[in-house]
């Protein structure tokens, strides 16, 4: 009698908080329930980013324009790096727009525990919302810079120097892949930064170097055989080359490379989510 009562009661719990939970208990249903929070966080970033600035969203143009000018001058003219025959401005801008989105998302995702320690320490919500909000918010900056890029592409197509093709339709998928990679890698790092602050230093530095291992300022075709295979291991290579192939009509690109990226990034994302999910439950004690 006592036992049966105990049993029926035990089934009624909405939730049981325990010290150890399975690695796979992701509770994505809960994340979905908090989708409004995700939207509101993105809105917050949007609303607050330009508060009290005079130029507002214009600032998003400043970075890619000046970086492109610098790259055109240093890598294009001084170093004389190849652009696969595409106009230098369009070539560098395409790389910068994509790279900015990736590096910003990665850096912010990796520091998500540190920057939000205050909120995380006071209230519970699925922590996964925060990195998701980061990559979504960064899309806004990306969108504005992407418009700039489109304007440049239209100009060069009009004067007959560029010939975009149907691969441009891949762009949304490329962006999702990019976000997925930043998210996966960022979450792995975020889990380590809570305990070992050294990781933050390593990451800032590492991201800078990683740009040179990604075809941002050079095309894959410019690489000699020896380094080419290494560059091709980078899952971002296919994404940026595909992006350029679509809009600029130049570059070394095949669908095999893209499939490799998709597989690589998916694995990364799964590992990142699992690690993040494990760390989020106790990080408040160590941060």
């Amino acid at each position: 009698m006592e036992d049966s009562k105990h049993l029926s009661e035990a089934e009624n719990w909405t939730e049981v908080i325990e010290p150890h939970s399975s690695l796979l208990s992701l509770n994505l249903k809960e994340v979905w329930r908090y989708r409004d929070l995700l939207l509101l966080l993105v809105k917050r970033d949007f609303v607050t980013y330009f508060k009290q600035t005079i130029l507002g969203p214009i600032w998003f143009f400043v970075n890619p324009i000046f970086t492109t000018i610098m790259y055109t001058f240093v890598f294009g003219n001084l170093a004389g790096l190849s652009t696969d025959g595409a106009p230098q401005v369009a070539f560098y801008l395409s790389g910068i727009v994509m790279w900015n989105y990736f590096s910003n998302s990665l850096n912010q995702t990796a520091n998500v525990f540190t920057t939000n320690a205050n909120i995380f320490g006071k209230v519970y919500f699925p922590r996964l919302i925060m990195p998701l909000a980061v990559v979504t918010s960064n899309l806004m900056q990306f969108a504005i810079q992407f418009l700039l890029f489109i304007a440049v592409v239209i100009y060069y197509s009009y004067i007959g120097k560029l010939h975009p093709n149907l691969w441009v339709l891949m762009t949304p998928i490329l962006i999702v892949l990019m976000a997925g990679f930043a998210l996966g890698l960022g979450m792995i790092f975020s889990s380590m930064t809570t305990k070992y602050k050294d990781m933050t230093m390593l990451l800032t530095f590492g991201v800078q170097l990683f740009m040179y291992a990604t075809p941002v300022i050079y095309p894959v075709s410019a690489m000699n055989e020896k380094y080419r295979d290494i560059i091709l291991l980078n899952p971002l290579t296919a994404i940026i080359e595909c992006f350029r192939y679509g809009f600029l009509g130049v570059g070394d690109f095949n669908s095999g490379m893209l499939i490799y990226s998709i597989v690589f990034i998916s694995i990364m994302l799964i590992i990142g989510t699992l690690v993040f999910n494990k760390v989020q439950k106790s990080f408040m004690d160590t941060i």
């Binding site: 009624n12 909405t14 325990e18 010290p19 909120i119 006071k122 209230v123 519970y124 439950k281 408040m284």
Partner: peptide, 28 residues
């Protein structure tokens, strides 16, 4: 522990219904 900000070292908490915690006003 009750508000799930951090997890327990041992033992468990069983809950019926949603928990809302107000450890601080104006979080966020």
């Amino acid at each position: 522990l009750l508000s799930k900000v951090t997890k327990p070292s041992t033992g468990n908490i069983k809950v019926k219904g949603r928990i809302a915690s107000l450890l601080e006003v104006g979080t966020g």
